[in-house]
C-alpha cells in the first residue's frame, strides 16, 4: 500500500472561542500517503502536546464515515476534494508532494464555531425533535411482515435515510440552507407507508423549526448534493417542497 512519504503545507484554522478572532496557523509536515487527514491532525497534535502547546481542537468519532461527527472545509470544499467521502475517509494519497491545504470549520450562521474546528450543529437536532419520527409507542407494533413494502420503495427510503447529519450541505450552500438535510428526513417517511399518517404535519413542523434556527433558503445551486458524503439527492428537496405546498393546501394555512 504505502509509497514514499509526501511533504504538505497545512494551514489550519485556529480560534480560541466563539467570540475570538480566528486565524490560520501553518504546519509543514512529511506524512505517509496511507494516513487519513485526521491522522495527520493527530500527529500534529501529538507534537504540539509534547511541546506544551495547545493541540488543534477537532471532533471525530467512528472514523468510518458514518457517525457524521467530523467535517472540515478543505481547500474550499466541505469534506475535501473527493466526491461522496467524509473527512475521516480522506487519505493523503489523494494529494501530491508539495501541496498546500487550507483546513477550516464548517462555516454557517447556524453553526457557531466553538473552538478551532469544532462547530455547534445543535440546530439539526432541534429540527428532528420537531417531527423527524413516526409516532409509535413501543410494544404495539404488528408483525414486521404485516406491512408489505416493495423493494424499490424500501431502497428509495434508505437512500434518503443514509444522511449522516454532518452539516456539509449547510457549509456548502451559499445561503447556509439545511434543505437537503431536512428533505432527506422528510422524504424517508414520506416514501414509506408507515410515515403517511403524519406526513403533512411533519413537513410543516420541521420546516418551521429549520427557519427559526437561522438556516437559509434553497436557491437550487445543488452544491449540497455535490458535497454530500452520502450523495443524498436534491430530489429530496423537491419532494419536501411538494409535500410542504400540499400541506398548506390541505390545512389551508398560509404561514
Amino acid at each position: 500500500m504505502s509509497e514514499k512519504n509526501i511533504k504538505l503545507t497545512l494551514n489550519i484554522w485556529r480560534q480560541e472561542s466563539p467570540e475570538a478572532k480566528g486565524h490560520f496557523e501553518k504546519f509543514e509536515k512529511e506524512i505517509s500517503p496511507d494516513a487519513s487527514i485526521l491522522e495527520v491532525l493527530d500527529e500534529i497534535n501529538n507534537h504540539l502536546e509534547a511541546e506544551g502547546k495547545e493541540p488543534i481542537a477537532f471532533e471525530s468519532d467512528c472514523r468510518e464515515g458514518i457517525c457524521g461527527t467530523c467535517g472540515f472545509v478543505i481547500n474550499g470544499q466541505p469534506h475535501g476534494p473527493l466526491p461522496k467521502t467524509a473527512t475521516c475517509q480522506l487519505h493523503m494519497r489523494n494529494f501530491k508532494d508539495g501541496d498546500s491545504l487550507y483546513i477550516e470549520p464548517f462555516r454557517a450562521t447556524a453553526f457557531k464555531i466553538l473552538k478551532d474546528l469544532i462547530v455547534d450543529r445543535s440546530g439539526f437536532d432541534k429540527i428532528q425533535v420537531a417531527g423527524g419520527f413516526i409516532s409509535f409507542n413501543t410494544g404495539s407494533a404488528p408483525d414486521g411482515n404485516a406491512i408489505s413494502i416493495a423493494k424499490e420503495i424500501a431502497d428509495e427510503a434508505l437512500d434518503a435515510a443514509e444522511c449522516i447529519g454532518c452539516g456539509a450541505c449547510v457549509a456548502a450552500c451559499k445561503n447556509s440552507s439545511a434543505m437537503l438535510f431536512v428533505g432527506a428526513k422528510v422524504s424517508q417517511f414520506a416514501i414509506l407507508p408507515q410515515g403517511q399518517p403524519e406526513r403533512y404535519e411533519r413537513v410543516q413542523a420541521m420546516v418551521k423549526v429549520m427557519d427559526e434556527n437561522l438556516f437559509g433558503s434553497c436557491t437550487n445551486t445543488y452544491a449540497c448534493e455535490a458535497e454530500c458524503p452520502k450523495g443524498i439527492s436534491v430530489l429530496n428537496i423537491a419532494r419536501m417542497n411538494r409535500d410542504y405546498f400540499m400541506a398548506k393546501l390541505k390545512t389551508g394555512t398560509n404561514e
Binding site: F136, T138, A141, P142, G144, A154, A157, L192
Partner: peptide, 11 residues
C-alpha cells in the same frame, strides 16, 4: 418495533 418506526430494512 423497528419496522413500525420506519426503519428501512432490506426487502
Amino acid at each position: 418495533q423497528c419496522v413500525a418506526q420506519g426503519v428501512p430494512f432490506a426487502r
